[in-house]
């Protein structure tokens, strides 16, 4: 028996909107720790890892670890039917091949349930070793989204270079080149508006903008984004989900031919 009640149902709506175009089908794993997912995109270039900790749910009942295969497009369609203020409850009986999403309006005057068929998904779970990152960049998530969108109108790939002076996002395409430099800036009114570069060891990596742009669909989940870079390993783009967990996107770099 599984029953997860999430008062801030809009979080789950936002999570699905942020991953449904990157991953088609995925297994949601439910354990005492929380509700989680790990999945690669179909070309195995990017990986998404989601964790919603059990403590973040108003009610969390998960009698035994289960893995529920879902088509994320279909799940997003169902969650779109929930109001932004609705409380969302996920329910599944042992051995059942369906999951039920229940939506309650805040005033309890409307209750809807949507039942979705589960799928058998053969997915491999990857071990992600702890890595020491050369540079960790924390910046407003909207600013990062803006940079990725702007640069993708010029080129297909971005070179992200960190130096003591700041972080530079560069692209080039048929029509020309573009460089955006962000300097560390902690003298702002609100902490979420700061740009912070921790451990600024020089590092320079190239990534496909198409994927970074897809990751920025998670922008509504968090005011800030944390970008962890190290030479020759995937970048981690993390959006923290207030008091519940995180959504992390891993993107493999491009290398010179």
């Amino acid at each position: 028996m599984l029953e997860l009640r999430l008062v801030q149902g809009s979080l789950l709506k936002k999570v699905l909107e942020s991953i449904k175009d990157l991953v088609n089908d995925a297994n949601f794993d439910c354990s005492a720790t929380g509700f989680s997912l790990q999945a690669m995109d179909s070309s195995h270039v990017a990986l998404v890892a989601l964790l919603l900790r059990s403590e973040g749910f108003e009610h969390y009942r998960c009698d035994r670890n289960i893995s529920m295969g879902m088509n994320l497009g279909n799940m997003a369609k169902m969650l779109k039917c929930a109001g932004n203020d609705d409380i969302i409850t996920l329910k599944a009986d042992d051995g059942s091949d369906t999951v039920t999403f229940m939506f309650e309006s805040p005033t309890q005057d409307k209750i809807a349930d949507f039942e979705m068929r589960l799928m058998d998904i053969d997915s491999e779970h990857l071990g992600i070793p702890e890595a020491e990152y050369h540079a960790i960049l924390i910046m407003p998530s909207a600013e990062f989204a803006r940079i990725c969108k702007d640069l993708s109108s010029i080129g297909d790939t971005v070179v992200i270079s960190v130096t003591k002076e700041g972080v530079k996002f560069s692209t080039r395409g048929d029509i020309g080149t573009a460089n955006v430099v962000c300097r560390q800036n902690t003298t702002v009114d609100k902490p979420e508006e700061a740009t912070v570069i921790e451990m600024p060891e020089p590092v320079s990596l190239t990534f496909a903008l198409r994927y970074l742009n897809s990751f920025t669909k998670a922008t509504p989940l968090s005011n800030t984004v944390t970008i962890s870079l190290s030479s020759e390993i995937p970048v981690v783009v993390e959006y923290k989900i207030a008091e519940m967990g995180y959504i992390r996107f891993y993107l493999a770099p491009k290398i010179e031919e």
Partner: peptide, 14 residues
């Protein structure tokens, strides 16, 4: 531009 590496070049099945 450049060769796109795969996530599976870095992380193995656990």
């Amino acid at each position: 531009r450049g060769v796109q590496l795969s996530i599976t070049n870095f992380y193995r099945s656990s």
